[in-house]
Design a protein around this nucleic acid. Structure first.
Lengths: 337, 337
DNA sequence: CTGTTAGCGCGTTCAG
DNA sequence: CTGAACGCGCTAACAG
């Protein structure tokens, strides 16, 4: 292994000068620089970044915690985080957590272990153990930014959208088309994210004095087959909604499959609206009306924010909402008379 | 920052003993262990893994190079790599390359820089610069395993499937249904991966003495909108195939959208077959017949293989093909008379 | 502008 | 079984 010492010897300067040539060339005479560079090439020297990081007490690495990397909602966000990170000389340590607190904790610990400088989590909960009563940030926590799902009360910086408003807008759109019998096909009952979307849904219905019975609210997972099963169940229970509000696009696509099997045409017989605006939403059997979440921007903002925290600034706002957008495609129409 | 020295002082032993207690407790007397552990808890000591890695000349980190993490084909593989890596005490450094050789090189360099121990690449080309004539592995290259797309001649270990055979089987299935007029909706013309699938396609057609004109071979990208556009173009050119062989599932889903707009029913008017078996293939407007690629197994095998290389073994086989499978769903049927 | 000196925190000899 | 001493490869502070 050729080290900085060898280069120093070969070029007849001190190790300090070699180090400087590499990190702050402006502080080294041109002629010396050239000698050093030549020695580096001759010897095939490559900086031991691990040693450098150790010495500088920085890892230039951030942990990205994602519940499921094989999920188009998350992966698009991660993608943009990587782009920003790379442009700033940082690397991404990928942590797939499956929402498992133990795995989240293990990955977050890397910061204390000096293997990472900060954490971005796309999960629902803080990735560190915190007792339920805590309402403040502990300065001992690692530099942390949450994205999207986190809705807890501890004021950790979080980038996302206003889910209540978005769901309200989506539902209002259906109401505007004339729908009065709308079912909610949801995610897990205890996810705040799901609760928020349900809340916006209900709030919109209340404008028209519509109260929704339990037979119109289904819970499940944010997954294709859950959307399928929930929709089947909905109609098994005897409901005959003219529109479906699906808590995300995957659920909506699962629902579409169920509707096809039930011989219900979209949007002639029933309207359907999703949430997220995955790229694939435009390639469904019927292009899906949905809420666009600005996932690229979310990733970019989160990484930028974390970077500024790592540089010593403490964020003023802790709950940053980015603009969402209702994307109207072909899966929604006025109900038949 | 509390270091191993503080723990040593606090527990009245030497740093060596603290180190041993943590890494090889069997070599330390029980009573000493307890004293040390108590001191660790009292002081809140956390091992500086960065320093430890530096000292041990290992990073316990592997770089995973993926052309596009927001792609369901790749992300499922990455997911399994992470699972195996974590279970063996390794971490994943995520490198999104967009097929850019410069980015690939930058990430691969991390191994020489001691920030990573090895590389797994899901890309097409070797992620290191190698002159075109080279036909052998250079011992100076980082420990490397390729997955899926690599088809180069340098014998680097590569986990994948036999694409020629798979495409041959898929096409044979269509022929068996009675189709004689089949179009190929492909990926990039110069990707060996695409060429291999085309080769299998042609080989099957030859059995029936069918030669395919240029109007039946389309090239594009492995993407939704490319499948859409290629299919539109195909029919614009006047082709009237009774079946479409799509080089991957995304292309197939794009093609389906085009067929809907062309008022062609699947499978009554036209059959369609994909490649990969993404989860979502079962949720298309018509559940998609496709070739299943064992992506979990590919990820697992690759990581396992890299691990064994890191442990000093040199792989005998360099081209490992895993079994694929034809999944018949509803998008294929016999052509109308 | 450059060299000397002094560690960073840990693992690993080698004695005892 | 334990401790003293050394050094991994590099950066930073200070002189000069």
């Amino acid at each position: 292994m050729v080290s900085i010492k060898d280069v120093a010897k070969l070029s007849g300067v001190s190790v300090a000068t070699v180090s400087r040539t590499l990190s702050r060339p402006d502080k080294v005479a041109d002629s010396t620089q050239q000698r050093v560079m030549r020695a580096i090439e001759q010897s095939g020297y490559v900086t031991n970044v691990l040693a450098s990081n150790f010495r500088r007490r920085k890892s230039q690495t951030i942990v990205v915690l994602v519940p499921d990397i094989a999920n188009l909602y998350y992966s698009k966000i991660v993608q943009e985080i990587e782009v920003v990170a790379r442009s700033k000389g940082y690397q991404i340590l990928l942590g797939e957590t499956q929402q498992d607190p133990k795995i989240e904790q293990t990955y977050s610990d890397l910061v204390h272990q000096r293997m990472a400088d900060g954490v971005i989590s796309l999960g629902m909960e803080l990735p560190i153990k915190v007792d339920a009563k805590r309402k403040t940030v502990d300065p001992k926590w690692p530099p942390l930014v949450m994205i999207g799902e986190y809705t807890g009360s501890v004021p950790v910086p979080r980038i996302g959208i206003d889910n209540v408003s978005a769901a309200y807008d989506a539902t209002s759109y259906l109401l505007g088309l004339g729908h009065r019998d709308i079912a909610f096909v949801g995610g897990p009952r205890d996810f705040t994210l799901c609760k928020e979307r349900l809340q916006g849904f209900r709030k919109a219905l209340q404008k028209f004095k519509i109260s929704t019975g339990l037979d119109h609210i289904q819970y499940g997972e944010f997954k294709l087959d859950s959307g399928y099963k929930q929709t089947k169940k909905l109609f098994d229970l005897g409901a005959t909604p003219t529109a479906l509000f699906c808590a995300n696009d995957e659920i909506a696509m699962g629902a579409m499959k169920a509707l096809r099997e039930l011989k219900l045409r979209v949007p002639e017989d029933i309207s359907i609206i999703g949430f997220d605006n995955l790229e694939i939403a435009d390639y469904c059997s019927v292009p899906l009306t949905t809420i666009h979440q600005p996932r690229k921007e979310m990733g970019r903002e989160a990484m930028t924010l974390l970077l500024s925290i790592l540089n010593g600034s403490s964020p003023k706002e802790t709950r940053i909402n980015l603009p969402y957008q209702l994307i109207v495609r072909d899966s929604t129409a006025s109900p038949r008379q």
